[in-house]
Design a binder for these strands. Structure first.
Length: 625
DNA sequence: TGGGGTCCT
DNA sequence: AGGACCC
């Protein structure tokens, strides 16, 4: 629609092979739905206009423009597919809060399950500010890129995503912590919980679980038997609206792939031709990215007699270094060399002396390495991390120019992710750390300043609740997320405003490629954008003993909650506090502060694992020390 | 029932 | 290498 505004008011469907992958709202009104076959769609809506969306190039480019724009406002952006982004706006919120009198606060947009006019922004200062940030981001995306979309503002990614769909076309909604339970119960089935896919839903169903509350109340012990501890706890927490995952800045892609599906392919001639075609486009994209792929993977799908769905098989191999150099440099004879490599892999997958029937071929570059900053110096053999990764989310502006010692960004102290540096943890730590000081001390407990936590915890529950509900207020570091999605609706045709500058670097994009869907479909969109913002108030309540329902059990129960903590209360806590508490509980024995990371370059490695919680002390507010 | 992606095992 | 998840 952006490319051709005249389609704006017509029912439009984006087609990939035989299905309508998405459509605009006009088409939806005629009954066209998301992954409907072309024939069904035409039946429901004979005037449906179809646009081929198999080449994702333009969608991918637009997608990164959105991500980059968001990053220019706030660096912590996590992509989810091509049309959704989570943005952790905690810091932005905190800084605005400092310079904003409470009396000047307001909410913009919808508030889930409440009248916006009936809610006092002073009671939820962070969420209120978050709602304004979301509105600003949506406006920026609209005015600079011509795209519209929804946003959800909540205390964690799960909630932000779920609430973003509350008001559909091009609106935003904020979730107040006390409405979390209602939101979760509003989901029609377990499949609606992001993170519960078809497989998990099926296994849950076999256990007799169908609704969100079924999962909330199911004994964790039994859940663990089916799924293992980690998965069990995670999905049960999700059902309760608890999501301790961080907004992980996405950075440049980890892999680039290109694929095509077809009814039938059964000769080597067709296969090598298709491989060549796919590779040509992939190499071009890879070249524009500028990084060097260290690994190549070939994937196929065979016509499956029974098990129709997803049987994909793959083989991968390292890419000879002379070839990966050439790819980055844009050498022209790379194609034939890579086709040779791919064909060899193909023979590992398919015995061509027998008949075969393929329905898909995929080629993929992964293990992408940024080119050494220090050119080929030996130094690069000593540093564990792939130098440089930098910048913008998108394609990492290729190296300034192929080959060339590129000088910029000499090792930035620690890149934000990309290949390997620490990210999650670091991020966590970082995000917390600054606030840490603020956090652990004063503001942290969500208690009024004049209340001694040690005294508070021994008060009767209803007194605690009362104190807290009056205090409503806030706390300090909370995560926030925002996602944005797009859709176009407005559309001017091509107004791509322009690259926007990101903190000092520029962004670029690639061009050709593959296929697509979503965005342009017209005005439609889906939902995207979620924003999660901080949260505010609400109370905590500690139960000593008695464990209410859930679960039981001892030490680890209800999804890992200590027996003295009510999951419902827990779910109302800000996400970062939830994270801290969980990680402390998990390490029961308190705080062996993990070796702590030297943080510097030395250890590098550690990409994203280990959730090492540090900072703690939260626990003391919950248990009798 | 696409053509992409991510992370975990 | 495959499996789960997301869009």
């Amino acid at each position: 629609m952006i490319r051709n505004p005249s389609l704006r008011d017509l029912p439009l469907g984006i087609q990939q092979k035989y299905i309508i992958v998405t459509s605009n709202y006009v088409a939806r009104q005629h009954g066209v739905t998301k992954l409907m076959s072309v024939s069904d769609a035409k039946e429901k809506c004979p005037q449906l206009v179809l646009v081929n969306g198999e080449d994702l190039t333009c969608y991918r480019e637009m997608s990164y423009k959105v991500t980059d724009l968001l990053m220019s406002h706030c660096p912590l952006v996590e992509r989810l597919g091509f049309d959704e982004n989570f943005v952790d706006v905690t810091e932005l919120v905190e800084s605005r809060l400092k310079e904003t009198p409470l009396s000047a606060l307001s909410f913009v947009g919808h508030i889930y399950n409440q009248e916006t006019s009936a809610v006092s922004a002073k009671d939820y200062p962070r969420l209120a500010i978050g709602s304004h940030i979301a509105a600003e981001l949506r406006d920026a995306v609209h005015t600079k890129l011509g795209l519209t979309g929804c946003a959800g503002i909540a205390s964690n990614k799960l909630l932000a995503k779920l609430v973003s769909g509350a008001f559909k076309p091009n609106q935003q909604t904020t979730l107040l912590p006390e409405c979390t339970v209602t939101l979760m119960h509003s989901l029609s089935g377990l499949r609606r919980v992001p993170g519960v896919g078809p497989r998990t839903a099926q296994r849950l169903q076999a256990l007799g679980l169908h609704s969100v509350s079924d999962l909330q109340l199911f004994p964790l012990v039994d859940l663990v038997k089916e799924f293992g501890e980690a998965h069990a706890k995670r999905i049960q927490n999700l059902a309760r609206g608890i999501d301790v995952s961080m907004v992980t800045p996405t950075g440049p892609p980890q892999s680039l792939s290109d694929e095509d599906s077809f009814k039938k392919m059964s000769t080597m001639a067709e296969v090598s031709q298709k491989i060549e075609e796919l590779l040509a486009s992939l190499i071009d994209r890879m070249h524009k990215d500028g990084r060097q792929p260290m690994t190549f993977r070939l994937t196929i799908r065979r016509l499956s007699t029974a098990n129709k769905w997803f049987n994909r098989e793959s083989r991968q191999c390292p890419i000879p270094s002379f070839l990966s150099q050439k790819i980055a440099l844009g050498s022209s004879d790379v194609l034939t060399h890579l086709v040779t490599v791919a064909v060899k892999l193909f023979h590992k997958l398919v015995d061509t002396s027998e008949a075969f029937h393929l329905t898909l071929i995929n080629v993929c570059f992964c293990n992408l390495q940024s080119r050494s900053v220090s050119r080929g110096s030996i130094a690069s053999f000593f540093s564990h991390k792939p130098p440089q990764k930098p910048q913008s989310s998108s394609r990492h502006t290729g190296p300034p120019s192929p080959r060339q010692p590129i000088s910029p960004t000499p090792t930035q102290s620690h890149g934000r992710r990309g290949g390997s540096d620490y990210s999650v943890e670091e991020r966590t730590g970082a995000s917390r750390s600054p606030k840490t000081s603020g956090l652990e001390e004063g503001a942290f407990p969500r208690l009024p300043p004049d209340v001694d936590p040690d005294v508070f915890k021994v008060l009767p529950q209803h007194i605690q609740e009362e104190l807290l509900s009056n205090f409503q207020t806030e706390r300090s570091g909370i995560p926030s997320v925002l996602t944005t999605d797009l859709e176009d609706q407005t559309g001017f045709s091509h107004i791509f405003p322009e690259p926007l500058k990101r903190a000092s670097q520029s962004v670029r994009s690639e061009e050709r490629g593959a296929v697509c869907r979503e965005y342009d479909a017209g005005s439609s969109r889906e939902d995207g954008n979620e924003f999660s913002v901080p949260q505010d108030p609400v109370g905590m309540r500690v139960e000593h003993d008695n464990s209410s329902k859930s679960v039981t059990s001892n030490s680890v129960s209800g999804a890992d909650f200590p027996h003295n903590v009510d999951p419902c209360v827990f779910s109302q806590l800000p996400a970062d506090m939830q994270r801290e508490l969980l990680s402390e509980w998990r390490q029961q024995k308190p705080i062996f502060k993990m070796p702590s990371r030297p943080s510097g370059t030395g250890g590098a490695s550690r990409d994203k694992k280990t959730k090492g919680p540090q900072t703690n002390n939260l626990l003391k507010y919950f248990k009798p020390s």
